[in-house]
Write a protein that binds this DNA or RNA. Structure first.
Length: 480
RNA sequence: GGGAUCGUCGUCUAGCUUGGUAUGAUACUAGUCUGGGGGACUAGUGGUCGCAGGUUCAAAUCCUGCCGGUCCCA
């Protein structure tokens, strides 16, 4: 391995796919497991996930949602209770058929999602309107067999996610919950991960199997492909009926409950890597970065060391007292240059360099990761770092938004669409609402309806494909 | 679903056509000098060639199957 091979050896622009994989492996976020389609998270990857889960947990909690735990095995009889749901997931379910050498009668599924299991439990727990709403969230992993085209964080046979399941007395309340969750998702992804999203509905064809409707948030990746960032489903009574999730209302009449389910996965990490990363490696938005500021002390002789280290400690304490997550890189065997590159590969938002020269000048050098700018900051101004972190966060979202806009088009001519889709992007185009057109477009161009943005409809335009009256203006794109 | 391609110390790689138990770099360990953008020198450790069979006196090399990675098309 040459010097260059320690870092990323391909450019994001020229070989996006390889670039992505190298970041995941070389920034030590994850590694491949011995089984196809599975990955192992390493500490630097897992701490990003923890940072995300912490943020979501706070928001869920303030919305009255509490965490629980569900087992990973679901008996086939339960999974099959809602027929469409079962049919939708069956091709990608892993089955447990044996315990030791003995065959299991009712074979067990490794959960592809937990609606059926959760609602079996809910039906035991809910009897009265006083038990509602019931709002729970589960952090776990789900398993869906991916045979081809696996990619760390984006498509793996097992993935970490949260699945939320709520039960309500009325349709209105459940639908409100669907939107509240989608709003939490959108805020978190935009404000914490600095990734702009478009929210709206999935088409009938693309909705969650078993849902009445699915709301989604979609983002556009730098290679022009769309990535589904999270979904929030209104299940209506589709599950409450087969699973008998019912309650006695105030009038003592028994009703089936109204339900929602929703989830985001570690795919968000993949999106963050793709959107913000550059040819030096990962770039973490400050709010989600496990380490926000890394201090690299620079010294050679003992004297310098005695001058530098106390100052480093002082700065560390000051930053920590302001709630900033700081790390001091005191590895003695590595040169400063190596450390600079190393932390850039790992994406830490701000690096502080402090050596004898700086101590004499009563200042430090700070380097911002997202634009790789260096500047000098006086000792008395160190507290400004809080503000700088905020500014970086805002700048990153702004840049990402601009990039997304560049790759978004409004279009109505199908031939134009067919030629432009080759380069990727989001295409807002009128659609008649018929499945047939949706399927044809998919077949001919590889693009599907990613999202029908809220408020889209009542247009005078003709369907891009069949020229009949359109009923909405969805975003078409090729997806991950 | 169809097709292509790859797999050799931790990592990257030579060797494979024309069989004779493996090359170099980097990393790692120890020491000395160094230290403001991936440091230098010296001395060491580390692989039986993805896995399983087969052919052969002999297999990293030839054959078959499997496992895993990557890419393209639907």
């Amino acid at each position: 391995m040459t010097k260059e091979d320690i870092g990323i050896t391909v450019s994001k622009k020229e070989d996006f796919s390889e670039w992505y994989t190298q970041i995941v492996l070389k920034a030590k976020l994850a590694d491949y497991a011995p089984v196809k389609g599975l990955i192992v998270l390493r500490p630097d990857g897992y701490s990003i996930w923890e940072s995300l889960t912490n943020t979501f947990d706070k928001k869920f909690a303030s919305n009255g949602i509490r965490n629980g735990f569900l087992p990973i095995l679901i008996p086939e009889s339960l999974l099959g209770k809602e027929q469409k749901h079962f049919a939708g997931f069956n091709p990608e379910v892993f089955w447990v058929t044996h315990s030791g050498d003995n065959e299991i009668g009712d074979r067990l599924a490794l959960r592809p999602t937990s609606e059926t299991l959760a609602y079996t439990m809910y039906s035991k727990w809910i009897q009265s309107w006083r038990d509602l709403p019931l709002k729970m969230n589960f952090w776990n992993s789900a398993l869906r067999a991916e045979i081809k085209g696996t990619k760390p964080f984006l498509r793996t046979s097992e993935f970490l996610w949260q699945e939320g399941h709520t039960v309500h007395a009325t349709r209105e309340e459940a639908e409100e919950e669907v939107m509240k969750i989608l709003e939490i998702y959108k805020n978190t992804v935009e404000e914490e991960l600095a990734i702009p999203v478009t929210t709206g509905n999935k088409s009938e064809k693309e909705k969650f199997v078993g849902a009445v409707y699915t709301t989604t948030m979609e983002s556009i990746m730098p290679d022009g492909k769309a990535l589904q960032m999270g979904t929030s489903h209104f299940l209506g009574q589709n599950f409450s009926k087969p699973f008998e999730v019912k309650f006695a209302d105030k009038d003592n009449v028994e009703h089936f409950a109204w339900q929602t389910s929703w989830g985001v996965s570690w795919r968000l990490i993949g999106a963050m890597i793709m959107i913000h990363g550059d040819d030096q490696g990962l770039v973490l938005p400050p709010r989600i970065a496990p380490i926000q500021v890394v201090i690299v002390p620079i010294y050679k002789k003992g004297d310098d060391r005695d001058m530098v280290l106390p100052k480093v400690e002082e700065i560390r304490e000051m930053l920590e007292s302001k709630g900033i997550r700081v790390h001091v890189d005191d590895r003695s065997e590595l040169s400063p240059g190596y450390k600079f590159n190393d932390w850039e590969l790992k994406g830490v938002p701000i690096r502080i360099e402090i050596g004898p020269k700086d101590v004499k000048k009563q200042s430090v050098v700070i380097a911002k990761r997202y634009n790789r700018e260096k500047s000098s900051l006086g000792f008395t101004e160190i507290e400004k770092i809080s503000t700088i972190l905020d500014e970086i966060q805002i700048a990153m979202l702004k840049t990402a938004r601009e990039q997304a806009n560049v790759n978004s088009y409004v279009i109505s001519d199908y031939n134009e669409f067919k030629s432009k889709i080759e380069k990727g992007g989001f295409f807002t185009a009128p659609w008649c609402g018929k499945l047939e057109c949706e399927e044809k477009i998919k077949e001919e161009t590889g693009a599907d309806i990613r999202v029908i943005p809220f408020g889209s409809g009542n247009t005078d335009e003709k369907c891009m494909y069949c020229q009949e009256q359109s009923i909405s203006v969805p975003i078409f794109a090729r997806g991950y």
